[in-house]
Design a protein around this nucleic acid. Sequence first.
DNA 1: TCCTACAGACGGCGGTGATC
DNA 2: GATCACCGCCGTCTGTAGGA
Length: 315
Amino acid sequence: MAYTLNQLLNRLTFRQLQVFKVVFHKLSYSKAAEQLGLTQPAVSAQMKQLEAALGQPMFDYVGKQLYVTPAGEQLERVVRGMFSDLESLQMNLYQLEGQLRGELRLCVVSSAEIIVPYLLKGFLSRYPTVNARLTVLNRTNATERLLQNRDDIVIMGVVPDTRLLSRQPFFDNPLIPVVSAGHPLLSGSEITQQEFFDAGYLQREQGSGSRAALEDWCRTQRVQAKPAMALGSNEALKHAVLAGLGVAVLPHANVLAELQLGTLVSPKIKGFPLRRSWCAVYPSAKQPTPVMQAFLDHIGSEGAAALASRFSVAE
DNA sequence: TCCTACAGACGGCGGTGATC
DNA sequence: GATCACCGCCGTCTGTAGGA
């Protein structure tokens, strides 16, 4: 039975929604109770009241296992938005008092994980009351989480082409070809694009942004890239090249140390480097929280300067 | 007379421990 | 996980006193 909005507002409490949120993620009343500092009966009672208020079960209990019902899935989306708005409100209230406090939920595509510590260091030194939570994923999963409002900002190199996302480029991210020192390709005077990709091309896994960028580039350059192997991270790719398994195209920042040491070499090949920028990406529909805005301002100025001093490409 | 502040009574709500 | 009995806290209601 569905209630009118007023009836719902009279019966529903924030406490019920808070408990529901934890049960949804833990899929256990006992574990939710432990996290909330309650006993299992207290959680059970809150869920019972919530389900009575909404007139529908949020969970099915089958064989000692909780399963989320379609109504539970719907409620979770609403609750996530509500709690996100409340967090924004809290940050705005702190801002009215002249303080910047709250959580920055940052997600980073795996290729960007080496630059982010240099962005965060200055930011957290300046705003010690901000709590940063960092998640590392590939581009597809990071984008999905962003659109589900599970993160505030994603740092990525190749931004999906959609109006749902706003982007703020803040630092060059050139993709360069790399081979191990002493590779037979280096003995010739000039390397063609096709020769490079025929020398055991190693690529990133499906869903990676740098792989997508490179596949686009190959199409426009009419180059046949037949990968010898796909690996799940730039770090794995780099070590595969160092081990002599093949050649790869990697972000310059990821191989800077090896190029300086001379263990990797970036040969001159027509069309390279691929010009890309690291971007801070957030949902277009989302009004940036004060903490988000402060981080966006930071990476556009001090953050970019910190990266330039460490990762800039010598032309 | 009206408004505000305070105190006491009461009921509902949310919690626990025990038990199924 | 669900239910029950019990307990403590808190909000509401009501009555009273004091000040404008």
